[in-house]
Computed example of a mutant assay.
Amino acid sequence: MIHTKPLNNTIPAREKLLVSILTPAYNEADIIEKSVQTIYDYMQQLEDEYDWELVVVNDGSRDNTGKLADELARTKDNMRVIHHKINRNLGGALQTGFRHCRGDYVIVLDIDLTYAPYHIERLLVEAVETDADIVVASPYMKGGKTTKIPFKRELLSRAMNKLLRWTSPADLHTYTGMVRAYKREFLQNLNLKSNTYTINPEIINKACILRSRIQEIPAHLDWSEQSKVVSRTSSIKILSGIFSGLMTGFIFRPYAFFMTIGGILSLISIYVIGWIFVNTFAIYPDIAVGARDVEQAFSLSVATVFQDRPYSFFVGGVTLILALQFLSLGFLSLQSKRYFDELFHLGSSIFKNSNNAVVK
């Protein structure tokens, strides 16, 4: 069940939780020291409420990110750094981080702090109060906002999230965002495949299949610092983002694409065939006067309409055939999707039992 509701900062009475702050880093030598210190300054204010750790995944950085992270970890007892020898992209970095986090809850945060650290407590409060498996920080829901995001980037992001909202069973506003809170128990039983940014919608998709509880809170995505650095989004990257978004949406609900196309083609074919019949019956009385019988009159009427508008018959016939094909594919993909969901649910149960057996 998916819920979206306004933020409530009241923390219920409970035992002290261990929270893991997970942040992937790739070529972030210029900002990692400042960002880590900012996180520490904020989390120290919450030490009466939570025990916590910071887990940094150096994702094969080519600059001094790894070295600087190691130096920071030597001076901070609750900071750990995991290194990738090569860049494994966001999906790979998150999967590595999930395996190494020890907290009851895992908070994923951008190392550039485009979502300020105060989102950590907001995510935790919502997760604890609602017993959610996932809490998403959403700049696109009511109460959220964005600041100084490059136009192309924001346009692409909003379009992709609108598409995913249409195809997903989860009623969320942000599917591609990385900043979230997770129950570690939920992550331990989740088998992930994606190595790219599509890992974020993949998690939502699989959480829906497992009927996990997902919440969403308003957030502020602030690019004020990033906007000072000149960056250009290439046409290839934009096209790649659009293609990835379409494929992710297709995986969410493939039958929606087929049935939508089939529905549009059905409407076109009904309109064209309807036009043919209207014009046929419009000229039928005049032709019937000289015809032997009704059958001949009707045939001559159709032939007259065909001579006048032959392409109408072609368009009506082709669109009708294509509509039936796409609708058939839609029903088949719906059946396949349900089979996949059941198999994934069964596989996840086996995976969970295997993990529990290893722990015991």
Rank of each mutant, 00 (worst) to 15 (best):
L113A: 04
S231N: 09
Y115T: 04
A25Q: 07
D59V: 06
G245H: 07
N205S: 11
T176R: 13
L329V: 02
D293Q: 05
C101T: 15
T248D: 09
T174S: 13
T130C: 10
D308E: 13
H83C: 04
N89I: 08
G262S: 09
F340Y: 14
D110I: 10
L68M: 14
D70H: 15
L17T: 00
T146G: 02
Y339E: 12
R99D: 15
T198M: 11
L265V: 01
K85I: 04
L164A: 09
A207L: 04
I217M: 04
Y40A: 06
D131Q: 11
P218L: 09
S240L: 12
K183Y: 13
N9Y: 10
Q44D: 04
L334P: 04
K193L: 12
Q95H: 01
S194F: 08
S328R: 10
I21C: 06
K228I: 06
S20I: 01
S299K: 15
S138F: 08
N279Y: 07
V289S: 01
A137W: 01
P24G: 09
F151A: 11
M259G: 05
R102K: 15
A297I: 06
V135A: 00
P150S: 06
S328N: 12
K85W: 03
S224L: 07
I107V: 12
G103N: 03
K337Y: 14
A132F: 00
K352V: 01
I270E: 14
F351M: 04
